[in-house]
């Protein structure tokens, strides 16, 4: 595209982001500050993820973008078109064909490989933010690996409700050192992060933080020995493909209480049905 550098960002910005990514990989789970730029879409629409993707993307990459598991929602379509225009890269909706996957709030059901990179869009990178509003304080807590506050929150949940009430953005310990927000993925996806063969990069644009989980790194949901982490899944099979192991969306179908449950991961669902609908929008 005329008038823009490859992948939109200028080279000094890419270098700055690349340096931050490398330090993030060397210190798994630690939030590295970076000079997030204004992007041609609002905060909350994936500006952090887009900057990370722009810094790593090359002409021979194949990009997939998902929003809540779907390839065909507004956010996914517009980001895919953005990189298609400013970088001219090939895009896909098929998880196994992609070399870089940018995601908002889901991890694909199809297991990822070690030659793939998963880029998360992160709204709130600080896992302690809801418990301690001061950034200076939480920074100190991370420095001292003092995560008692989060244990107390989990304990209070169990004491009041009998179970931990966090259903998404479930806090995890990375490499037994840093407490990390996995971004607002469902708690259902949390275990997929543990020892994942793919590199996982996290970008938070408004909060100006980048963090990472290298391949085959321990990612453990925070829990107690007598109250171990438990997966939550709607007790249904997918109406479209019949999957009983995937994360489901509840879809209201009429105003008389009709509803159905379908896979949130559209590529996984289409693949299981064996149809070509997963081509979707590859503009």
């Amino acid at each position: 595209m005329n008038g823009y550098n490859f992948a939109y960002l200028d080279e000094p910005t890419k270098r700055m982001i690349r340096r931050a990514i490398l330090k993030a990989v060397a210190i798994p789970g630690h939030q590295v500050p970076f000079g997030a730029r204004e992007m041609p879409l609002p905060y909350g629409w994936g500006t952090g993820g887009i900057q990370v993707t722009a810094a790593i993307l090359g002409a021979d990459d194949v990009l997939k973008v998902i929003d809540q598991g779907a390839d065909d929602t507004t956010n996914a379509v517009s980001i895919r078109r953005f990189f298609s225009r400013v970088a001219g890269v090939e895009t896909t909706t098929r998880t196994r064909d992609a070399s870089v996957i940018q995601t908002r709030h889901r991890i694909p059901e199809t297991p990822l490989r070690d030659d793939q990179i998963l880029v998360y869009q992160v709204p709130l990178p600080e896992p302690l933010a809801k418990l301690e509003p001061s950034r200076a304080e939480t920074k100190q807590m991370h420095a001292l690996a003092d995560y008692g506050l989060m244990h107390v929150k989990l304990y209070e949940d169990i004491a009041r409700f009998g179970h931990v009430t966090i259903s998404y953005d479930y806090p995890v310990m990375v490499n037994d050192r840093y407490l990390m927000s996995p971004s607002p993925i469902p708690a259902f996806d949390t275990l997929k992060m543990n020892r994942m063969p793919a590199l996982q990069l996290f970008g938070a644009g408004r909060e100006k933080r980048i963090y990472a989980v290298p391949p085959y790194t321990t990612v453990r949901p925070l829990d107690f020995d007598d109250h171990p982490f438990a997966l939550i899944r709607a007790p249904h099979a997918c109406t479209l493909c019949g999957a009983t192991n995937s994360y489901l969306d509840e879809v209201v179908t009429d105003d008389r209480g009709g509803r159905m449950f379908i896979c949130s991961d559209t590529d996984y669902c289409a693949d299981r049905r064996g149809d070509a609908a997963s081509e979707g929008d590859a503009a």
């Binding site: 080279e11 490398l22 990989v25 590199l199 290298p214």
Partner: peptide, 14 residues
Amino acid sequence: AQACFRLVLRTMSS
């Protein structure tokens, strides 16, 4: 620079 960075990223991650 992009190709070299991806190599650095690959060996830093592995």
